[in-house]
Design a protein around this nucleic acid. Structure first.
Lengths: 205, 205
DNA sequence: ACATTTGTTAACCAAATGGTTAAACCATAC
DNA sequence: GTATGGTTTAACCATTTGGTTAACAAATGT
């Protein structure tokens, strides 16, 4: 129905597993349901991926590898902090709007099992704040930015971008908006969020 | 170990259930584990709360009822938007630091089953943005605040306050800080977040 | 042609799990 | 004391679930 026509069974299974795991989480997912969604026999799952745990890890690592490098890319390019914020907000929101379950999936499973991160950290391409930190400190000294700790700024940027995807049912209920209106709010945020952050931290000249 | 000495079995069970459900989620939780944590027989769980589903709903509703009214209180008092932001940030962060699993638990389970919100919405005391919206619009007209939609501002406030509790393992890994340092970051946010928001939206005189 | 490896399936299995039952326990009332 | 009602437990049950097996089909190599 979506993509991955039929290349090979392996990625066809992975696609089905991704859908089920992201909907139900590791604990809620059933191997039978994944098999059904992939249109194959349950035993075949175990033929390709030995166990539920291994299938899950394959899905998780793929999802994480999709999300993390983008973050890294923006953090480590040569633009100013202001540009970084604009780029990140624009790119990341566009990306997540296409994969709305990703953030929730990844954060949940990391909470469930933080040790995962140890495996991930080994990979190079694992996001790293060093350059961003130096840059923030420098721009603060130069009087471009108001004093703020790089870590706090980083949390704020990520929070403003990702949170609406973690809490959509709740926000929809509180703000009394329907799906279409919420979708529009999200699109608006592609520019709104960057403005919001920059207005907060930039010293006007 | 914590509170609820021994009042009655019912709340003793609820306390144990809360702990297990918040750690493991509905799907990951086991009735046996809840029974063990409550120091009772598994059959007794079913004696007090007929099924896992009912026990879960009792826990969930209690958690939600703890979180929601606070939000409502701040939104609907008579202070200015600026004061509301300060109050909310200060109060909510203090509260959540004491119950760090709550946000993750509630958001997860709502994503898993958004229909829950219909039940919740029936309760009076369910948070409502009407007053907040009017107030934002008014202060924008009066030139106190820069133009911003109330919904977006609301999302931003909640995101900045809650997100660090949803993503703690991830942020710790990215920012390379240990538990103690992270705890300190959270405490700092009690004032930092309010400043960050107000700097962004307030028109300087 | 045929042997060998790879892919696929239906049937099966053992463990885990939510839930039930029937008996025991223990207060309080008579 | 013992009848009565709620409380608690050990043992049990049916179903679900992850995983295996053994047979079969389809490629692939020779």
């Amino acid at each position: 129905m979506t993509e991955t026509k039929d290349e090979n069974k392996e990625s066809q299974i992975l696609e089905a597993a991704k859908n089920v795991f992201q909907r139900k989480g590791m604990d809620g997912a059933r191997m039978q349901e994944i098999a059904d969604e992939a249109g194959i026999n349950k035993a075949l799952l175990h033929y390709y991926y030995r166990s539920k745990q291994m299938l899950f890890e394959a899905v998780f690592i793929k999802a994480f590898s999709l999300l993390a490098p983008q973050l890294n890319k923006v953090l480590n390019d040569d633009s100013s902090i202001e540009e970084k914020i604009r780029n990140f907000t624009e790119n990341y929101l566009s990306f997540i709007i296409k994969h709305p379950y990703l953030p929730s999936f990844i954060l949940n499973e990391l909470n469930r099992n933080p040790d995962f991160l140890l495996k991930m950290k080994a990979n190079k391409g694992f996001p790293n704040l060093d350059k961003f930190k130096k840059q923030v400190n420098l721009e603060v000294e130069q009087g471009i930015l108001k004093p703020i700790k790089a870590e706090q700024l980083f949390i704020n940027i990520v929070a403003l971008n990702i949170f609406p995807f973690l809490a959509s049912p709740l926000i929809k209920a509180f703000a009394n908006v329907d799906d279409a209106a919420y979708q529009q709010l999200l699109v608006d945020r592609k520019t709104e969020v960057a403005i919001f952050i920059i207005d907060s931290i930039k010293i006007k000249s």
